[in-house]
């Protein structure tokens, strides 16, 4: 689930459990516990970027055509993007298995 580098024994755990490396949240693959994923309907999408702004895990990246796609390594399936999309272009689809 989380950054596997941090899963160490008590002898190697950082002093005081501090995080010594700043800006390391990209190491935490928050996508592991997702139960549903956002799927964007490009027909409806107006490329406004609201999903990109609201995603709490900053998973959306803009492609060359200006559409936004969520990175499934980090998307935790919260559905905020689907809720905020002004065009209802995003559907939350259950993850299989």
């Amino acid at each position: 689930m989380a950054n596997s580098d941090a899963i160490v024994g008590w002898k190697t755990i950082t002093f005081g459990c501090h995080i010594l490396e700043p800006g390391n949240s990209a190491n935490f693959r928050t996508g592991d516990w997702r139960s549903q994923r956002p799927v964007t309907d490009k027909e409806k999408c107006i490329r406004c970027g609201m999903c990109w702004i609201f995603c709490p895990d900053m998973t959306y990246k803009q492609d060359e055509e200006g559409y936004f796609e969520a990175d499934m390594e980090y998307c935790k399936g919260c559905g905020i993007c689907a809720h905020e999309c002004p065009k209802d272009a995003i559907t939350m689809v259950p993850e299989e298995g």
Partner: peptide, 19 residues
């Protein structure tokens, strides 16, 4: 910059306490 006092998920908490 460093972070002090982060969350200790179940995989980490025991080790932090034993340390």
């Amino acid at each position: 910059p460093i972070t002090m006092g982060p969350v200790g998920i179940p995989e980490v908490y025991t080790e932090a306490k034993v340390a």
